[in-house]
Design a protein around this nucleic acid. Structure first.
Lengths: 261, 261
DNA sequence: CTATCTTTGTGCACGCGTTCACAAAGACAT
DNA sequence: ATGTCTTTGTGAACGCGTGCACAAAGATAG
């Protein structure tokens, strides 16, 4: 889903599938909850249910980490928490910088989920001079001009971009130049980064559009189920006046209500 | 990535792959930008570059929608914008309700990306009586007690959950009971929903942990490249004191520095 | 020590998604 | 009309991820 992740054919034999990596945090969260309730061991079945996945998948995921777990018993909760934390690199401290302290940036700065697991908001950076010095979530906002120094001084390797889309690529370039090698991008922009830099994006608008697609499909099917053999459920409005495409032959033969040939 | 999405073997022949659906918003965004610059047509190569994907993938994606596009020329921008919008269900209005008006909820309410594409924040809901009536982003916050009525009155079918994790499942249940069939969940919780309800989750903490994993891997490889044949890069601290697992035989033979047998 | 019962770890098959590579389609020039 | 050149649309091969189903491992009881 992120941009990078297509190089190196797993240099070390330690080749944990990307899909598995994405699920480890899920397992970790479920295990932490069990740990807090002082549950000593858990079976793959139980844990899978808690994490909302298939138990076979969970076992296979864990098999990539090693043979933790005892047949006939299950997995030792504390031990597994440690192993997964270590695998994810959560036993060390990760200073994070947030660039773009608008509504979203401020919300993230205040978000508790950060500190809980090795992540520490080390710096808040914004381009607006009026913001400089203002404390947000107990941290003084610093100005973009000092970005380079801030990143270096704090040893930041993970940057979070919450700027407007227009500024995102530029900020990204500066972060990378300053030494950041992992970026979490909330701006609705496709970032281009050099080899070796990982980018993950969180795009609210895209998520909503995907939901809208399924929502529409559900509504369409429902309507079709009701009105027996009603025609296709996709003629709401006329398409915009258009030129040239004098050929329409969709795979299922439908076409927009109005189509200037 | 979401929970649901494993039922119905594509009832209608209209079987657009999930992976393709997830990319359509990306294409749409790139196309909209071109449209604003009054670019009339675009080739798969150019558009793919703008969206950050492979051009063959883009062509295959479009082929699921139909045979829009002209060989030797490319795709008509305006026409494609319309087709994708229609496919995603963006030609209609989607009233959205946000539940949990904390920092994040308020940030989302203020987020411009909503209104731009058919989505409209129809209601803000919070459990705190002190919040009731307070305007956020120009909309008065309403109380959870009225959730049912609010959803019905506004015809909301898409709900956004930005509550603390403890309240998420309960809110989810109430939303579903009130008629919501699509949920965007920002709370770090696994939601269980009945058949037919789509859930997508956005989990900041998980994204960061995935980045941390790769970050650690990069650091490890780098260190290995430097220090020639240095030992395994995973012994930071001693694991917590533990019992029972008297067998350690990881796939690559490594084991934590200290391991009480 | 043997038998039984539980639960892990994994071989295998299947399906989805990606990518290559190319034939077909059309634009455009002559 | 014919030929050339560009770009689409897609058949086919490949690789990854998922889930089934079962043998092996170990716990536990007698």
């Amino acid at each position: 889903m992120a941009t990078g992740r297509t190089h190196r054919p797993a240099t070390r034999s330690r080749g944990i599938p990307e899909a598995t990596v994405a699920r480890l945090p899920l397992y970790l969260r479920a295990l932490t909850a069990l740990s807090e309730r002082s549950v000593p061991t858990v079976s793959s079945e139980e844990l899978a249910a808690a994490a909302g996945v298939n138990s076979a998948k969970l076992r296979k995921d864990f098999s990539y980490l090693g043979s933790y777990g005892t047949r006939g018993v299950g997995y030792d909760v504390e031990y597994l928490v440690y192993q997964i934390s270590r695998e994810l690199g959560l036993t060390q401290d990760w200073p994070v910088a947030i660039v773009g302290i608008g509504n979203l940036g401020a919300a993230l700065a205040n978000y508790g989920g950060f500190a809980s697991r090795g992540f520490r908001v080390a710096a808040l950076i914004d381009a607006d001079p009026a913001m400089t010095g203002t404390p947000v979530a107990g941290i003084a906002v610093q100005h973009t001009d000092d970005l380079d120094r801030i990143i270096s001084d704090n040893g930041v390797s993970i940057g979070v971009i919450t700027t407007p889309p227009g500024a995102a690529q530029q900020v990204c370039d500066r972060l990378v130049a300053a030494g950041v090698t992992s970026i979490l991008n909330f701006a609705p922009t496709v970032l281009s980064v050099p080899e070796g830099v990982d980018v993950r994006k969180v795009d609210l608008s895209i998520e909503l559009q995907i939901l809208a697609f399924h929502e529409q499909r559900k509504a369409g099917e429902e309507a079709a189920a009701d009105g027996a053999a009603a025609e296709d459920p996709d003629e709401d409005q006329a398409p915009p006046v258009r030129a040239t495409p004098a050929h329409r032959k969709g795979p299922d033969g439908d076409m927009p209500a109005v189509m200037p040939a």
